[in-house]
């Protein structure tokens, strides 16, 4: 599904190397978790994969289903099946959440040569999916993320993911700022999307999200590299010993 080889990334405007050779392979149907200390490059990895400006890939490659995505525009990556649930979802005053969702869904369909969803089919689908995420009609009408609480923003990200049905879902600290109930809701939303054909990259600080979204593989990212890879037990090790222990062990 996703194959990252020897990825080196620096900031475009500064001589600051952030990723220093990341190798990662996420298979379809699997959930990979990435854990790591603050500033280790987790968000950078997710942004580079989704095509945000400001980063320069100096070495290495990233392919989605065999296609080089690094040369693609963000919207092309989205149409190819990439989705990032943002650590900090962006507020867009003046653009209604519903308009935004419908524009996005139909733009992707159009890019893939599929027919656009009719207004009524779209509405039915949104309502059903919003309901399971406890997103009410009022929230759908409001401008994108404007005035949403932290938890509402994260649920809104999952709603977008559910509507867009991507092939590869990257979740960047979707658990941050959530209380236990909200986290459960989000995790259920994600689990509902788990599927043979879909890969997940779940970035988190804490093991607790992984209690709800059970990963197949856990990676530790530190200093711009994946320093350790293991099974779900690795997340527990982080929980118990912190990163310090693992990093010392790997050094």
């Amino acid at each position: 599904m996703l194959e990252i080889k020897n990825l080196h990334v620096k900031l475009e405007d500064e001589e600051k190397q952030i990723l220093k050779g990341v190798d990662l392979k996420v298979e379809a149907g699997k959930v990979h978790a990435i854990m790591g200390p603050n500033g280790s490059g987790k968000s950078t990895l997710s942004y580079v994969l989704s095509g945000r400006d400001g980063y320069e890939v100096t070495e290495g490659s990233a392919e989605l289903e065999g296609e080089d995505i690094l040369e693609m525009e963000p919207e092309e990556r989205a149409a190819a099946g990439m989705f990032l649930a943002f650590q900090y979802p962006v507020e867009i005053p003046g653009v209604g959440n519903m308009t935004f969702l419908r524009t996005a869904v139909n733009a992707q369909r159009k890019a893939r040569g599929e027919e656009e969803l009719s207004a009524s089919d779209f509405l039915k689908e949104v309502r059903a999916k919003a309901k399971t995420l406890k997103i009410d009609a009022e929230m759908l009408k409001r401008p994108v993320n404007v005035g949403f609480s932290g938890g509402e923003k994260k649920r809104n990200e999952i709603l977008q993911m559910a509507m867009l049905e991507p092939k590869l879902c990257i979740l960047d600290e979707t658990d941050s700022g959530l209380d236990v109930d909200a986290m459960k809701l989000v995790a259920e939303g994600v689990n509902a999307l788990r599927d043979e054909g879909r890969g997940f990259l779940v970035i988190t600080h804490y093991q607790r999200l992984l209690d709800h979204i059970k990963p197949d593989v856990v990676h530790i990212l530190a200093g711009g590299r994946i320093v350790k890879t293991g099974g779900p037990e690795l997340a527990l090790e982080v929980e118990n010993n912190g990163y310090a222990g693992i990093l010392a062990e790997e050094a």
Partner: peptide, 8 residues
């Protein structure tokens, strides 16, 4: 970027 990342 947010809009584009959603395919717009």
């Amino acid at each position: 970027f947010y809009l584009r990342s959603r395919g717009v």
